[in-house]
Computed example of a mutant assay.
Amino acid sequence: MVSVSKNERSKYLTDVVIIRLSLIFLLVFYHSFAIYSGNWSSPFFFPLDIPVYYWLSVCSHGFRLEAMTFISGLLLGYTVKRYPERMSFNGCVIKKIKRILLPCILFSAIYFFIFSEANMTWYESVYEIMIGCGHLWYLPMVFWCFVLIFIIETYTTTSVKVLLSITFLLSLLPLQGFLPLRLGYTINFFIYFYIGYLIMKHDVTEKIKISAFYCVLGILIYFLIGILLKEWIMELNPSSLMMHGIQILLMRASHLTGALAMILAFYGISNFAYVSGYIAKHPRFIKLSGYCYGVYIYQQFILLLLYFHTNMPIILGPVALPWVACIITICLSLLMCHLTLKTRLGKFLIG
């Protein structure tokens, strides 16, 4: 077993804490504004047309889930580097079934019975719950990422460069709706998980660390240009099937490179001495980061109830609604996490 110094562990935790807290805020922020970008239906009886809110939604969504997947891979790489024996069927499959799939099924069943309006047979309903209703689709997707890493590390001898190239190319294919059990989503997201895993496992953090402010600023500008490019490509009307395929590949390539750029920027910012030092001196942020899993699960329940099962949209109107809903959702999600973690079952589910 490799020993880890207190300073090394503390520094690593600040990396993860900063990114986790940033991403969980962006998650709630994005969902609060999703009604303005067409990703959620409108709670009003009239169409919503607030361009600023549309772009806030689009920009906050362009890399968030990808960065969350990157962090999951980063954590696995950190664990395997220090405890190689955890690269096992028990560590990567059995424990992840308990950690990821069981909470997914429980909360997915609750989500289904509260929000589902589809007329399904019993077996269709069971399948929908198993693969994650609503935002919970992400959990089985990331579970398969752990399974894929276990298979790669245990049964393949292919070089890392070849595997990275394969996962990069596969991520460009629109497979999300074509494979069962969220495997299509896994193929599209695995590149981020694998990169995070390799960075930590092979200890290349120092080689990619960004220390220059202007470098981070340049990456941010690149990301915004990528968002604009993707939106422009989406508006094109291809005249043939081949051109439509090229359009999809260009959109996915723009999204992939933009997301990777923002992940790199976030990872660089989290390693700024001032930022990591501030987090290290304020342990309450580390505690808050432990609530991120629970906030992820609870936030969409709260927002959907606020938007579609209360009079809040009518009372506040379309301009103030997302800001107030975002604040309320963050506060209620944190409170529910705090209360849930006080119970034994709650610690098992989101601890």
Rank of each mutant, 00 (worst) to 15 (best):
Y123P: 01
I302K: 00
C133S: 09
T156V: 07
I187R: 03
C326V: 03
V93P: 11
N311H: 14
M1F: 09
V295G: 05
C331K: 10
Y53G: 02
Y83N: 14
I286S: 02
K209Q: 09
L170D: 07
F89A: 15
I19F: 01
G245E: 10
F168V: 12
I149A: 15
F44N: 09
F70T: 04
G177C: 10
S276E: 13
I315C: 00
S289C: 13
F113N: 12
I71D: 05
M120C: 02
G351I: 01
L183S: 02
Y296Q: 04
T157G: 15
L179R: 12
I191S: 00
L76V: 09
M120L: 13
L334I: 14
S5L: 07
H255W: 01
K347W: 03
I315G: 01
L316V: 04
L181G: 09
W137H: 12
I18S: 02
M87W: 00
A109D: 08
F285G: 14
P180G: 14
C326Y: 04
K230G: 00
P51E: 12
Y138Q: 11
Y36H: 11
H31M: 14
T167D: 02
I110L: 14
I100Y: 04
F45A: 15
P103C: 13
V93G: 08
R284K: 10
W323G: 13
S42K: 03
Y185S: 12
C59L: 13
V58C: 05
F115V: 04
F112V: 15
S165M: 11
E66I: 06
C215I: 10
E128S: 06
S333E: 07
L321N: 14
I248K: 06
G245Y: 05
Y267S: 03
L175G: 03
K342S: 12
R9C: 06
R284E: 05
N90K: 15
N7A: 15
V16E: 07
K201C: 08
G91Y: 06
L303V: 13
L163G: 09
K96I: 07
G73R: 02
Y36Q: 07
L148P: 11
V147A: 15
Y293L: 05
I114T: 15
P43M: 09
H338E: 13
L304T: 10
C326I: 03
Y83T: 05
H338S: 11
N311C: 13
V52W: 10
R82M: 06
I129H: 06
I151R: 14
L229N: 04
F89C: 12
S270F: 06
L220N: 03
